[in-house]
């Protein structure tokens, strides 16, 4: 589904990603871990098409298409979803209105009829249960005055509504207490299917107790330096990132 080859990206002349290779197949969950500043969030942003980042080398193929040639909204309509680390506030625009615009633009792209108000609300009610989100929250302005947990829950709710093929969760666990973490993870797990894939970007192993990955990759200085199964995450939790840094240091010598 997603094939990243030798991806290099920089921002304002500083190279952040220095040759990423990654294969993600349908039905898989990949975790990207790594210390601060290793390029985790940059990778998520580049895949979603944030314009500040310049891709200097490499290729990204998504469902057989060159992803890097598509505008951010086209990537979204093709099925790429990014759950933001810091969801933005849009004053005066209700979540409901926002999502209805989004869902119908995505549907139009997929050759489907736009949903009328009744069908849309029915769909919303159904998906709301997944992340245990309160309807009151959705009639308020998008993310305005939401708590950290409410914002993250709203991200997963949007994911449920847009039914993406590839979901990228960027530090979705940050700022969540344990109850909220369970709810959010539960939502993500229920949305999992053999046809879609998930990339979980996280700093801590904690989230991976709830969203169990098939593969774990360690990102360090813009490169994937180690890949393994979920046991790798446990090892990282136990030993920290230093041993990886040392390993790399030795390899370089």
């Amino acid at each position: 589904m997603l094939s990243i080859k030798n991806l290099h990206a920089s921002i304002e002349g500083n190279e952040i990603l220095r040759g990423i290779d990654l294969e993600v197949k349908a039905g898989e969950v990949h975790a990207i871990m790594g210390p601060n500043g290793s390029g985790k969030s940059t990778l998520a942003s580049v895949l979603a098409g944030r314009e500040e980042y310049e891709v200097t080398e490499g290729e990204v193929v998504f469902k057989g298409e060159n992803l890097l040639e598509l505008a951010p909204e086209e990537r979204a309509r093709e099925g790429v979803f990014l759950a933001f680390q810091y969801p933005v506030e849009i004053p005066g625009v209700s979540s409901t209105n926002f999502l209805r615009t989004a869902v119908n633009q995505v549907r139009e792209h997929r050759g489907l009829e736009p949903l009328d108000a009744v069908k849309f609300l029915t769909m919303m009610k159904e998906k709301m249960k997944l992340v245990e989100i309160d309807q009151k929250l959705l009639s308020r302005a998008l993310n305005e005055g939401f708590s950290g947990g409410e914002k993250k829950r709203n991200e997963i709710f949007q994911m449920a509504m847009l039914e993406p093929t590839l979901s990228i969760l960027d530090e979705t666990d940050s700022g969540l207490d344990i109850d909220a973490l369970k709810i959010v993870s539960n939502g993500v797990n229920q949305l999992k299917s053999k046809d879609n894939a998930t990339i979980v970007v996280t700093h801590y192993q904690r989230l991976l107790d709830y969203i169990v990955p098939d593969f774990v990759h360690v990102l360090y200085k813009g490169k994937i330096v180690k890949s393994g199964t979920k046991e790798l995450a446990l090892e990282l939790e136990e030993k920290g990132y230093d041993w990886i840094k040392e390993e790399i240091g030795q390899a370089a010598v």
Binding site: A48, G49, R50, E51, A71, P72, E73, R75, A76, R77, F81, L82, F84, P87, V88, I90, F98, L99, T101, A102, V103, Q105, V106, H109, Q158, L162
Partner: peptide
């Protein structure tokens, strides 16, 4: 804000 909307498929 614009990127956020774009990322949800809104041009």
């Amino acid at each position: 804000q614009i990127f956020y909307c774009n990322q949800r498929g809104i041009d």
